[in-house]
Structures are given as C-alpha cells and as structure tokens.
Simulated scan of single mutants.
Amino acid sequence: MAARSKSLNVFKKPLAVHSLNPVTGFTRSGYCETPRGDVGNHSVAGILTDQFLDFSASRGNDLRSIGLKGGCRWCLCASRWKEALLARKGDNDDVVPRVVLSATNEKALDDIPMEDLRKFAAEE
C-alpha cells in the first residue's frame, strides 16, 4: 500500500492513489503528486487510450516504450492532456484520456479549467 499523500485533489480533499500497477506519478508513489522538480506538472490522473498513446508518441513522448497501453492509469502532464483536449475532433474523441478527479492533483487547475476536467471525468 502506498503511503498517504499530503497533496490535495481538485476538490481540495486528500489526493487518492491513482495506480500501483503500473506504479505511476512523478515520484512513482502511485499518486499524481507534483514536487518542486516536476516541471511537467504530472497532475492529471488519466486513463490512457490507444488514441492518446498515438497522439503522445507523435509529440515525442512514446509512453508505450515504458510498457503502457490503453486502459492503464497514468499521471499525465497537464500541458499534454490539454494539448490532446485542444486537438480533439469532438467531446467523444478518445484522444482525450478520461480523468479520475479524486486522484487529480489540484495543481492541474493551474493549466486546465475544472469545467474541462469534469467534462472528461471517468465514472467512479
């Protein structure tokens, strides 16, 4: 079990663990924490899709090279998630990963409006 995070989610509640298999997060704690050294703001608790993996690879970050596949839960850079959001062809476009709001760090709100995160919230 992961040690409890001291970070808060987008609801200003304790941050929920996002994934321990695979172990995600900038610090590989299972949480989407954003310590001082995380210049990418890995704050968005996403559920990967094959379309997003293709999109990310086309932008120079091939997440499949570290063993990720569609369905994996991964802490994403807020800017890459937003880039996918802006590139989508509609609200049902699978290029935008669904978001687990309870595991999404409040720091995501520095780059992404809550309205956009809610629009792509995963059912929990």
Rank of each mutant, 00 (worst) to 15 (best):
V96P: 05
D116S: 13
S7L: 09
G71C: 11
S5D: 01
P35T: 02
A103K: 08
E115G: 03
D91Y: 13
R88M: 09
F11W: 13
A84T: 00
A16F: 13
P35G: 07
D116R: 02
G37W: 05
T24G: 06
F55D: 06
F55N: 04
L68F: 09
A78D: 12
W74K: 03
E106G: 09
M114E: 11
D50T: 08
A87M: 02
T27S: 14
S43V: 05
E106K: 14
L68M: 04
D50P: 07
I47Q: 09
A2E: 12
L86P: 00
V100S: 11
G70S: 15
T104K: 06
I112M: 05
A78F: 07
E115D: 14
N41G: 00
N21W: 11
K107S: 14
A121W: 06
Q51S: 12
A45H: 01
F120R: 12
H42T: 07
K12C: 07
N21R: 10
R73S: 13
L20T: 12
S102E: 13
D62L: 11
E124R: 08
K89W: 05
Q51E: 15
H18G: 07
G30F: 01
A121C: 03
A108T: 11
V10I: 15
V96K: 10
G25P: 03
D50F: 10
V23G: 11
C72E: 08
F26V: 01
R98L: 15
S102R: 14
K89V: 08
E124F: 13
W74M: 06
L117S: 08
C72S: 14
G25A: 10
A87H: 07
V23A: 09
F26W: 15
K6M: 06
S58F: 00
V95N: 09
V10F: 10
G30V: 04
T27F: 00
D54W: 02
R28H: 14
T104F: 05
P113V: 09
K82T: 02
A57S: 12
V17N: 07
I66V: 15
W74E: 06
G46M: 03
R98C: 11
S58G: 15
I47G: 00
A3G: 09
L117K: 03
S56A: 15
R118V: 14
N9R: 06
R36W: 02
G37M: 07
R4S: 15
R88E: 12
S5Y: 08
L15W: 01
L53G: 05
V10D: 01
R4K: 12
M114T: 01
V17R: 09
T34D: 01
P35I: 02
C72I: 01
E106C: 10
N41W: 00
F11I: 00
R118L: 15
D50Q: 08
G25H: 10
N61P: 00
R80P: 01
A103E: 08
T27L: 14
N9V: 07
A108L: 11
V39I: 13
C75P: 10
S19D: 05
G70R: 07
K119Q: 15
K6N: 12
